[in-house]
Design a protein around this nucleic acid. Sequence first.
DNA 1: GCAATATTGTTGATATAGTCAACTAAATGG
DNA 2: CCATTTAGTTGACTATATCAACAATATTGC
Lengths: 148, 148
Amino acid sequence: MTSDTLGDALHRLLHAYKRALRQAYNDAGLTLTVSHIRLLKGIHHQPGSTINALAERSRRDKAQITRLLHGLIAEGLIEKSPHPEDRRSQQVHPTDSGRAMIAAVQQAETVAAERMSAGLPASDIALFTRLAVTMTDNLYPAPESADE
Amino acid sequence: MTSDTLGDALHRLLHAYKRALRQAYNDAGLTLTVSHIRLLKGIHHQPGSTINALAERSRRDKAQITRLLHGLIAEGLIEKSPHPEDRRSQQVHPTDSGRAMIAAVQQAETVAAERMSAGLPASDIALFTRLAVTMTDNLYPAPESADE
DNA sequence: GCAATATTGTTGATATAGTCAACTAAATGG
DNA sequence: CCATTTAGTTGACTATATCAACAATATTGC
């Protein structure tokens, strides 16, 4: 199995998966983009996060996170509040609308994931996911000690 | 394992992988984008393809393929020739430069793939790739017969 | 044989995703 | 107390992707 094949398979799968996701969101009447939804889920998963924390966890540019947050705030799905200890910083929380949106998103994503996984045993999916996580970690090595 | 986890793992892996690819291309002095390189590889893999064939195989919009081809022609990596039978159509071939570029690309991609796969047995990578192909196929069902 | 329809590739327009740099206000460290 | 760092923002830009409309050409059906 060449490196070529693994890479090609990944590109193709993500392209197909993102299309399927967009289709499922559209079918569910959701108009947010994949990136907005991923961020909303990240906030829902860890309410009170700072923008920096969201950027770090998702490994996205904080400029992009800031812009995506604008969109989510405009939709009334999240809100910001001042950080209790650091006046440079804010904490981000989902609103009731945001939490309601998460439920709809999860349903739509289940549709897409079930299509994608059709005919595959849960043990294969579990292994696939574990391998994906491992490969991602391989690409983001833990920070080295100072004496590197 | 929730659908959430599979999807999230995929998003993260592709984001990390594309970054690693771009880094490897940069380190190798390659200035083409990931999309240009993927198209060049597709042409190299099947010289003489039409634009429509390239769009179909990659499942990209033909408008995007046309634009990417412009860039590759500008770099002298491919060339077009009139289709022998259909005057609407052209055939696309790699040039000698394009073929030389492929070798450099393969080297750079091996670097990225080896980082990504570090510590994983080849059998795991093979299984992962097979599962990725199956899931992609699940998302693009074969065209139905007319009596659907 | 001709008109209607379909196809190929292109261009226009637009949206989404992503990155780098520079900035201000605030925090930290020496 | 001052230099440096950090948090978040904005500007600018690139990459990726899609839809629609079009002209030229091919195909189909009568």
